[in-house]
């Protein structure tokens, strides 16, 4: 086989070497151009990405199945050992949940009656599409997964993706039969959330660590460790009230949230199709949640990303005011 000694060839054919060097520079230039294009987030790049993921997904789907089976087997083996203790704990939890069920039923009926009384705009319907996680991509700098459901199954960009225990992320790219879910721990992930009890709003901003940061909280919000964080529904793509996580650390260095979603056993994701009755972000389209109306003034309401101006709260504020006369 030919195995050219680099230096000899260079001496013999300087033109060829020059051409090679030129080609190399051209490729490096192309790499920089790709960086710029990729940073600009053009439709073209997205198409290229989805074309690739569409092509790879069937392969990954096949490869990931036996691995998932083995992982399940191992997990079941571990769980078998703890069966008795788990059973007792579940019995206890079941009793507790039975109680909660009656409470929830009563509240649901009460809520329906009150909503009717106040003429609250109906909540948009929600449907789910489930996809298998076929790729856990990205390496050290991106937190995203691919699922084997795409536009053909009704997945759309921006929708929320749920793991069994809570919000996992949002749909970032959609192909025909694959979709990329940007996990909420990714550095590019921004999700409008609310502290479940105090109703203070903020943005859950990922930074590639396991515990994303809760930002843009109003001054007087004093989140405590263990506070539940749910989606606020601002922006109109995510349904409000999806469980996100608990406050893990709250201190001078910022508030960190431990997501409910278990990244290590994420086998299926449910994509939430939440149809708003109107166009996105139109006023009044969002049904205000009567018990959870903001306690704080509009001045410290949620800033819209990325501008950071304090006007994001006006949307619900206005919706609430629109309802006020009927009270």
């Amino acid at each position: 086989m030919r195995r050219p000694a680099g230096t000899l060839l260079t001496l013999a054919t300087p033109i060829r070497a020059w051409a090679q060097r030129f080609a190399f520079l051209l490729l490096v230039g192309a790499a920089f151009a790709l960086m710029l294009v990729g940073k600009a987030d053009t439709v073209f790049v997205e198409r290229a990405r989805t074309a690739i993921t569409d092509a790879v997904t069937p392969v990954l789907d096949v490869v990931s199945r036996p691995i998932a089976s083995v992982a399940n087997l191992l997990r079941e083996g571990q769980e078998l050992a703890a069966l008795r203790a788990q059973n007792a704990a579940l019995r206890q939890e079941n009793a507790r949940l039975q109680h909660w069920q009656t409470v929830a039923r009563r509240l649901q009926a009460e809520n329906a009656a009150l909503s009717q009384l106040l003429n609250v705009a109906p909540e948009p319907s929600t449907s789910y599409t489930t996809g298998r996680v076929v790729a856990d991509t990205g390496g050290a700098f991106v937190r995203s997964v691919l699922i084997n459901a795409g536009a053909a199954q009704g997945v759309e960009k921006g929708q929320a993706a749920l793991a069994g225990d809570g919000l996992a992320g949002r749909v970032a790219e959609v192909g025909q039969r694959s979709a990329r879910i940007l996990l909420l721990t990714d550095i590019n992930s921004r999700i409008p959330v609310v502290i479940a009890d105090s109703r203070f709003r903020g943005i859950l901003a990922g930074d590639n660590t396991a515990n994303p940061r809760l930002r843009y909280l109003p001054e007087e919000a004093r989140p405590q460790t263990g506070d539940r964080i749910v989606t606020s529904g601002h922006g109109g793509v995510f349904p409000p009230g999806l469980p996100v996580g608990r406050v893990a650390r709250a201190g001078e260095s910022g508030v960190r949230v431990a997501p409910f979603a278990d990244w290590n056993r994420m086998e299926f994701l449910r994509v939430v199709d939440y149809r708003m009755p109107g166009i996105l972000m139109t006023d009044g389209a969002k049904a205000p949640k009567p018990p959870g109306t903001p306690r704080h003034s509009p001045a410290d309401s949620l800033p819209e990303l990325p501008s950071g101006a304090g006007e994001g709260g006006t949307l619900t504020e206005r919706a609430v005011q629109a309802k006020a006369p009927e009270e």
């Binding site: 790499a31 920089f32 151009a33 790709l34 960086m35 710029l36 294009v37 990729g38 940073k39 790049v45 290229a48 990405r49 690739i52 993921t53 790879v56 790729a135 991509t137 990205g138 390496g139 700098f141 991106v142 995203s144 970032a172 790219e173 990329r180």
Partner: peptide, 10 residues
């Protein structure tokens, strides 16, 4: 870069 969703070009 395209398949793993990392920054394109890097």
């Amino acid at each position: 870069d395209l398949a793993s969703g990392t920054a394109l070009g890097v």
